[in-house]
Write a protein that binds this DNA or RNA. Sequence first.
DNA 1: CCAACATATTGATGTGTATCAATATCAAGG
DNA 2: CCTTGATATTGATACACATCAATATGTTGG
Lengths: 116, 116
Amino acid sequence: MNSLPVLDPAPDDTCCAPAGPPALGAEEAKQKALVFKALADPNRLRLLSIVKADPSGESCVCDLTEPLDLGQPTVSHHLKILVDAGLLHREKRGTWAYYSLVPGALEQTAGLLAAL
Amino acid sequence: MNSLPVLDPAPDDTCCAPAGPPALGAEEAKQKALVFKALADPNRLRLLSIVKADPSGESCVCDLTEPLDLGQPTVSHHLKILVDAGLLHREKRGTWAYYSLVPGALEQTAGLLAAL
DNA sequence: CCAACATATTGATGTGTATCAATATCAAGG
DNA sequence: CCTTGATATTGATACACATCAATATGTTGG
């Protein structure tokens, strides 16, 4: 009920600031920090890595619980955080939920660093 | 007493893995997560931004406390985390401590995302 | 409709962290 | 030496978060 795609839009203060604050504004910083918060956990990095490495480009939860040695609810929780951050895409087919990288999301996140 | 430069070295398992694990290993993931943990706070992102934006390339703590509206010990704490992550460099000249971006650190961090 | 299975949600718990007040360290000036 | 000023460290507190057990939801097959 609370999906907040942090990466996609962000079209509010990156353009022609009228009296631009000298550096990163508080709001902007909070938004960007959300993405890095999603990346600030070893298991979530591994989840991204596994999903990215899969030849089919997607993985279901059942394929992700075992390599991380975590319980299924925990993996589900981490996946939700990655989806909310705009890094992963979730598609449910039948009983299974398939997760895949949002195209360009990692590159866009890398761009956040360059734009600091 | 506990400086752990996460970014600089990392020359232990990026080369010719003998029986390479399918994706990101647990150790490697923990290391990388440390850098993103350092970035996962709005105030730390703003600190980096301010230091980067300064024409002289460096800022002292006294210049950083005011724009963030935080106490001096808190700013000092955040700066330490950024230094430990290998993102900032600290140089003390006289009474003042000057912080500057570690050259290439942000680009290297962006590279971590591409290498997932 | 019911049983079985995959995933998500909830509640509880321990750990980490951001912040501040108080104090310590340490350099410069008198 | 002592005082002043800048930065760092410590202790305490409130809040966020990672994890799991238990349960709910929802889908497939009989």
